[in-house]
Amino acid sequence: MTTQSALQSYAEPGPLTTAEPGTAAVLTGLPSTLPDLIVAVQGLLIHEPGSAQSATGHLRMTHQILAHLLAADPRPLIEARPPAQRLAGCCRHFTLLAVAVLRAHGIPARARCGFARYFVPGLHGDHWVVEYWNAATSRWILADAQLGPVLCAALGVSFEPNDVPREQFAVAGDAWIRCRKGELDPSRCGLEGEGQSGWWWIAGNLIRDVAALAKMEMLPWDVWGAMPGPDEPINDVLADDLDQLAAITADPDTAAESRALYDNGRFRVPVRVYNFLRRTDEPVIEIT
């Protein structure tokens, strides 16, 4: 069961979803209701295959995203930018901005890291979505801020992006459990391409999901702590720990309880992390 203290925590900004002092109105100027919020976010960001190679693709903090957007176009963010002036990012940036806006409006929300079934047939593709609390129905709902009408039509998506069915998106813990039971092939969890799927990828996403539940929404290629590398076996001790984390995080009503285990030094986000794509150690919180 989701506690009131957990809801209160997720209704407040975290280190990466905080606007700079005096600029909170920038976030509250965006819609607090879905699907209006999804439309607004899509008018500000653009997903590009090469976004991970651009400077903006590596931004970790909401206030950095806002600064880039307003520097390129000082109009209120409710006004959609032309595609050329949208910030290039990945699914995590769409998710982060949507979560930041919902929290700025006092609505419990969190980022979830896992695997979507609706991008490539037969593949549980690496992906991030929003999980927000619907007070009217007293339940956590998944929303994909990246899914616009054109993309939905191209993919044949029939569900509403503001209410993604759980069978269409597996949070990392659910994917881990299903693979352990033999119900899901770990080689089909990740991305297409050699070495971009498997147990190590699922384990990394599970640890990133636990961090996101602790309000540390990291980049998909940030690496730290117990995350195994592509060629590293997962030993029994780590597997047991991941079993425990998966059991807690797979259920949205108990997911917040993982925050107690997050303080384990192997899972907690350190001051600096390894950016796998840039091959560099980088600070998580950048002081400007």
Rank of each mutant, 00 (worst) to 15 (best):
E183V: 13
D251A: 12
S51T: 11
L45V: 12
T56K: 04
N264W: 05
G204D: 08
E131M: 04
D263F: 13
G43Q: 12
L59G: 01
V39D: 02
L87G: 01
G229P: 11
D281W: 11
D73H: 04
L7K: 05
A211P: 14
P149N: 15
R208S: 04
P165K: 00
T137F: 00
T280V: 13
S138Q: 08
E282R: 12
G125M: 10
L69N: 04
V99G: 03
S54M: 14
I248K: 02
S9E: 10
E12N: 13
I202L: 04
G106A: 01
N205T: 04
R178H: 10
A40M: 06
L147D: 07
Y274P: 02
F159T: 10
G29M: 14
D251P: 15
P270I: 15
I177A: 14
S158W: 10
A239K: 14
A246F: 06
L66I: 13
D236R: 07
A172Y: 00
A247K: 03
A214C: 05
E48S: 15
Y262K: 00
A100K: 01
L16F: 08
A19H: 06
Y262E: 04
T137C: 03
Q4S: 10
Y118H: 07
W200V: 10
D185C: 01
A153Y: 06
V269Q: 03
E286W: 08
L123R: 11
S138W: 11
D241H: 13
E183P: 06
V171S: 08
E282M: 11
N264G: 07
Q244L: 09
A25K: 06
L66Y: 05
I65M: 12
A143F: 03
V150N: 15
L123V: 06
V284H: 03
G225S: 07
V41F: 03
L34N: 06
P49E: 09
K181V: 14
F115S: 04
A214H: 02
A52G: 14
H127D: 10
G229H: 13
L44A: 04
G265A: 02
H124N: 09
S5W: 11
R103P: 14
G182P: 03
S54C: 10
P76N: 03
R110F: 02
L27D: 05
A72P: 03
R86C: 09
A172R: 01
S258V: 09
P165A: 00
A226S: 08
F276Y: 08
V284D: 03
L277Y: 11
R279L: 11
R180H: 12
C91M: 11
A260K: 06
A154K: 09
W224P: 02
A19T: 09
F159A: 12
A170S: 11
L191Q: 07
V223I: 12
P283G: 15
